[in-house]
């Protein structure tokens, strides 16, 4: 149990710093940035308290906002994603989620893709709508969501492949 707490705390701090110091400065094609800090919400233990996840996600987003001077856009987007995570888990992994027996690394690839992609795109859509905050830039909003979303999904998969422990 302790091990889980420590690894999640470290992941929380590491992901915020990585996001604000490195990833926010990529600006590929002028505006495309990956949002890797979603890994924290994605990998948060499935059987832990939902209330705790809500609070931590809010703090995670607020931490990034603090660095970005962006008000509360990351906090709001993370919060929504954390709130709907159980529903997405049930949708992607089916019955096994209800019995809380799934291990992330041993799930089929298809379910994993749908789980990650749904969370990433919902998060990005909320994030960029709040950032742009006007209907005048609808096309820019969709472009940003799509490109950054694809970038994030790829980067999340790469880091999962890099850092996941091999099943013995």
């Amino acid at each position: 149990m302790n091990n889980v707490v420590i690894s999640n705390t470290l992941r929380f701090i590491f992901l915020i710093l990585l996001q604000v110091l490195l990833l926010n400065n990529i600006n590929f094609l002028g505006y495309v940035n990956p949002y890797l800090y979603l890994l924290f919400i994605l990998l948060f233990p499935f059987n832990a308290s939902q209330t705790l996840l809500l609070f931590l996600s809010f703090l995670l987003g607020l931490g990034v906002d603090l660095f970005e001077d962006s008000g509360g856009i990351n906090a709001a987007a993370c919060l929504v994603v954390a709130y709907i995570r159980p529903a997405i888990l049930r949708f992607s992994f089916g019955v096994s989620y209800d019995y809380q027996t799934i291990k992330f690394s041993s799930t089929p690839l298809g379910s994993r893709i749908s789980y990650i992609a749904i969370i990433v795109f919902v998060h990005h859509l909320i994030l960029f709508s709040l950032e742009i905050f006007s209907f005048a830039h609808l096309l820019l909003l969709l472009k940003k969501t799509l490109y950054s979303g694809i970038f994030s999904v790829i980067l999340i998969f790469l880091s999962l492949a890099l850092f996941s422990r091999k099943p013995k």
Binding site: L54, F55, F58, G61, L62, D65, D69, S70, G71, G72, I73, A75, A76, L79, V80, L130, F133
Partner: peptide, 12 residues
């Protein structure tokens, strides 16, 4: 929390 973060967003 959502209301709070939206408030921060509008303020920004």
């Amino acid at each position: 929390l959502l209301v709070f973060s939206i408030f921060l967003t509008i303020q920004s």
